[in-house]
Design a binder for these strands. Structure first.
Length: 110
DNA sequence: TGTTTGACCACGG
DNA sequence: GCCGTGGCCAAAC
């Protein structure tokens, strides 16, 4: 994968998130030590058409599914997570702290 | 070319 | 613990 685009790094990390785990926009931005959380969200928005990127595993720091409106239908994000065993109540991931996946610890795998 | 706007976050009051 | 604010940087207009 060409590293010309910042987006590619975001996609690469996002694809590494194991099923049943979640991470945040800010964590990805920090692990890349480049760009910002806003850009990560924006990059994922651009990747929406590519279904090989598990964007539903990326949520905001409060554990909320802030990006659900960019899925079709908006309930799709929650459905995908629950399919993987992640409980979602009121648009928020249950046990978010426990399910949190640290991108920085897996950068070497890229 | 300047302004506004994001699937955000840390910080200060 | 809830606001406002500033920073981040690329796109759209």
């Amino acid at each position: 994968m060409g590293n010309e685009h910042y987006f590619d790094w975001v996609y690469a990390i996002t694809r590494r998130i194991p099923p049943g785990r979640v991470t945040t926009y800010g964590a990805i931005a920090d692990s890349l030590a480049l760009g910002s959380a806003r850009m990560v969200g924006w990059a994922l928005n651009k990747c929406a058409p590519f279904d090989d990127i598990p964007a539903h595993r990326v949520i905001n720091r409060k554990g909320e599914l802030s990006g659900r409106h960019h899925f079709a239908p908006p309930t799709r994000m929650q459905e995908l997570l629950e399919q993987e065993g992640v409980k979602v109540v009121d648009n928020r991931v249950v046990d978010f702290d426990r399910l949190f996946w640290h991108p920085a610890e897996h950068l070497e795998d890229l």
